[in-house]
Structure formats: structure tokens, C-alpha cells
Amino acid sequence: MKYFACFLSMKDEEKSQKYRPQHLDFLKKMRHEKKVLMNGRFTDGAGGLIIYRANHLDEAIQYAKEDPYIQVGAREFEIHEWELVSEYNFD
């Protein structure tokens, strides 16, 4: 399993507020399915970060495209494979 850092940059603050509950439900479902390792917002309002768990980049991109924020145009995304380095085992 590989990890992918997905930056969700703010595109439309009004849509982000409106669709926040759907976005949070999506993240909860993805964490339950072990497709999201962690996520959080940037405190400066610039957007947020999601760490996806996927077999390859195309799979992670597909996950990002399923996010309600992306589907309604509230956020844009940029995604990169990410190498996790930690003393903790998250698996």
C-alpha cells in the first residue's frame, strides 16, 4: 500500500461551508474503509490535506474526485505520492 498527499486548496469558501457536512461524511467513510490515513484543515483557511492509502496514483486520484468538495467545485486538488516516515505503525 502506498500513501498519497492530497492538497485541497480553497476555490469557493461559500461552497466549502455549504458542503462541509458531506465532505466530513465522505472522510469518515473513507477512514472506516482504511482509504484515508489522516486529514485536517489548514488553520489559515487555505484548504486542507488528506493522506490517502491506495495501490497507485490513479486510484488515489479517483478517491479525490469522489470528494463532494471536488465534485461541487468548492476545492481544487493536487496529489503526490508521499513516503511515510514515522516511529509509529498506522496499519
Score class of each variant (00 low, 15 high):
R20K: 10
D25N: 08
S86T: 07
R41P: 07
E76M: 08
L27I: 09
T43M: 09
E66A: 07
S16W: 14
F90Y: 15
I70D: 05
S86P: 00
I70A: 00
Q71K: 15
K18E: 00
Y52N: 07
D12G: 11
G48E: 05
E13L: 14
Y3I: 04
D44S: 09
S9N: 10
D91E: 15
E33V: 03
H32Q: 15
K29S: 14
G40A: 02
Y88N: 08
D44C: 03
D58K: 14
D67C: 09
A46P: 02
E14I: 12
Q62N: 14
K18A: 05
F90L: 07
D12C: 07
I50W: 10
F77L: 15
Y69S: 03
N39C: 07
I70K: 01
F4Q: 01
M30T: 06
G47I: 04
A74C: 09
L84Q: 11
V72F: 09
Q22I: 01
K34V: 01
E14A: 15
A74Y: 01
L57K: 13
A54S: 14
Q62R: 15
I50F: 03
G47P: 11
A5R: 03
L37T: 13
L24V: 09
Q22Y: 13
N39T: 08
F42N: 02
F77K: 15
A5K: 01
N55C: 08
K2L: 07
D12M: 09
Y52R: 04
L27Q: 10
D91Q: 14
D58H: 12
N55A: 14
V72P: 12
E33N: 12
T43V: 11
Q62F: 08
K35T: 15
P68A: 02
F4H: 05
H32K: 15
P68E: 03
L57R: 13
N89C: 11
A5Q: 09
Y88D: 02
N55Y: 04
M1P: 13
D91S: 05
R75D: 11
I79W: 09
D67H: 10
R75L: 06
A54D: 03
V72K: 08
E66S: 09
R41I: 03
E14L: 12
L24G: 05
K29T: 15
W82R: 02
H80C: 06
G48C: 10
A5M: 13
Y69H: 13
Y3L: 00
S9E: 07
D25F: 10
E59T: 06
M10D: 02
E87P: 06
I79V: 09
Y63K: 03
D12V: 05
F7V: 12
G47K: 11
V72Q: 08
D25L: 10
Y19C: 01
A54T: 13
S16P: 03
I61S: 04
I51E: 02
F42Q: 04
K2A: 00
R75W: 02
K28A: 14
G40R: 06
V72L: 03
G73I: 14
E81I: 04
A64L: 12
Q71S: 10
F77Y: 15
I51W: 06
K11E: 11
E83P: 00
Y88H: 02
N55V: 01
N55P: 02
H56A: 07
Y19H: 12
V72I: 15
P68G: 01
V85W: 07
K15Y: 10
E66R: 11
P68I: 03
K11P: 06
Q71N: 08
Q17N: 12
Y88E: 05
D25E: 14
S86M: 04
L57E: 06
E33A: 14
Y63T: 10
Q71Y: 00
N39S: 12
